[in-house]
Nucleic acid binder design. Structure first.
Length: 382
DNA sequence: CAAGAGTTTCCTGCTT
DNA sequence: GAAGCAGGAAACTCTT
């Protein structure tokens, strides 16, 4: 079996373990979310060189590690059959903890090369602490953090938001086990610039959402109001990592790319010319999961959504357009509105991911095919 | 390449 | 009248 295919097989297994099914019965632990977040993020790149090179090794996923090993196997024409694949399945934090001698033990003749490569990458990314907290980033959380950080009412709460520009990995106390939500607060102190899915610091949501007043930070982004859309999307001002992956410019063309039915030509006009770099959400980032993740972090999403009945999974949109904008940000779709989002929500009724809540505006209920929100699942049950 | 999933977009009609 | 809700239809991208 060739290296690539073997590693691919392992990768599949790893992915399978991380995403058992599409509607992963996840207990939404920080670790699960983090892993998924980084993984999907990494998959986004699909570069020939490997996303791992751009990412702090401390934040590598198992996939990154495998890609990195694979790269070196190819690079050195190493006979992959000599590798014990069992040793290849680990994530960045584990890898970074390995003593030098373990590299030779585990990877044989390739060990030295891997060790030096890792050391180089570690120094490149300024890795100095022993153990990072890799359990901290959740796409939704990150997005929310950016999003809310720009709101006046949250400016105090996130008073150190500017830290996001330059923060480095810090030691954290390990309270996560007892407090599944704790990581949310932690993550703003992370080296987000090393992380890969574009919700890193400085992705100024304010660029597209500023000009707002508190309570109504959205320009009603009706298709008619091109306002915010004429500006760069956060995705456009992201780090270089992403930028290279999504060059599919058709600026000036009439063609609408993106999902769904093309909007009418004369509605909203210009912003539809904005490129859709990332066409499709990776697996595991479905709308209902996005909503769920917002709800699971009440200390950060206040003002956007709330639980009406936590135990029964009934929730309400408080700022429907804001949530829609946030969803749009995630999907790189600046023209998302609550109306569209709600249509997608209504499709969930059929699939029992959501249940109808009659007579109550903006209120929905998770259905039996949704998961990861129940108290027992998030470790708050009993 | 085709089919299916999961939206996205638009629309009409109805309700709050 | 505005905002939501319902749901049909069509279009689109990504995954399988």
């Amino acid at each position: 079996m060739s290296t690539s295919s073997e590693l691919s097989r392992i990768l599949s297994n790893v992915n399978g373990a991380v995403y058992p099914t599409e509607a992963q019965p996840l207990n939404s632990t920080p670790y699960t979310i983090m892993t998924k977040s980084l993984q999907t993020a990494d998959l986004t790149f699909g570069s020939t060189f490997g996303p791992w090179e751009q990412v702090n090794p401390l934040f590598w996923t198992q996939r990154n590690v495998l890609d990195w090993i694979d790269f070196h196997v190819e690079d050195s024409k190493f006979d992959a059959s000599l590798l014990n694949m069992g040793y290849c399945v680990m994530d960045g934090p584990v890898l970074c903890q390995l003593p030098r001698e373990s590299f030779s033990t585990m990877f044989g003749l390739l060990g030295e090369q891997l060790y030096h490569s890792l050391e180089a990458l570690k120094s490149k990314h300024g890795v100095t602490c022993d153990l990072p907290d890799p359990y901290v980033l959740n796409e939704t959380c990150a997005l929310l953090n950016d999003f809310l950080g720009d709101l006046p009412q949250y400016s105090t709460f996130l008073s150190d938001a500017s830290l996001l520009e330059t923060v480095v990995v810090q030691d954290v106390d390990i309270k996560r086990e007892n407090d599944p939500y704790n990581y949310f607060n932690d993550f703003k102190n992370r080296d987000l610039t090393s992380l890969s899915d574009g919700y890193e610091s400085g992705s100024n949501l304010s660029d597209s959402l500023h000009g707002s007043t508190s309570g109504s930070f959205l320009n009603p982004s009706s298709p008619e109001s091109a306002g915010s859309d004429s500006e760069l999307e956060p995705s456009d001002v992201r780090g270089s990592i992403n930028a290279k992956s999504f060059i599919k410019q058709e600026r000036g063309e009439q063609k609408k790319r993106g999902r769904g039915r093309p909007p009418k030509q004369n509605r909203g006009s210009d912003h539809y010319l904005e490129t859709k770099k990332n066409k499709h959400a990776p697996r595991g980032t479905h709308l209902w999961e996005f909503i769920r993740d917002i709800l699971l972090h009440p200390e950060q999403n206040q003002g956007l959504m709330k639980w009406e009945d936590r135990r029964d999974g009934i929730f309400k949109f408080l700022k429907s357009e804001a949530v829609a904008q946030l969803w749009g940000q995630k999907k790189k779709n600046s023209s998302m509105t609550y109306e569209k989002l709600s249509r997608a929500m209504r499709y969930y009724y059929k699939r029992d991911i959501l249940e109808r809540v009659d007579g109550r505006r903006l209120v929905y209920k998770f259905g039996k095919n949704s998961s990861g929100w129940k108290l027992e699942e998030v470790g708050l049950g009993r």
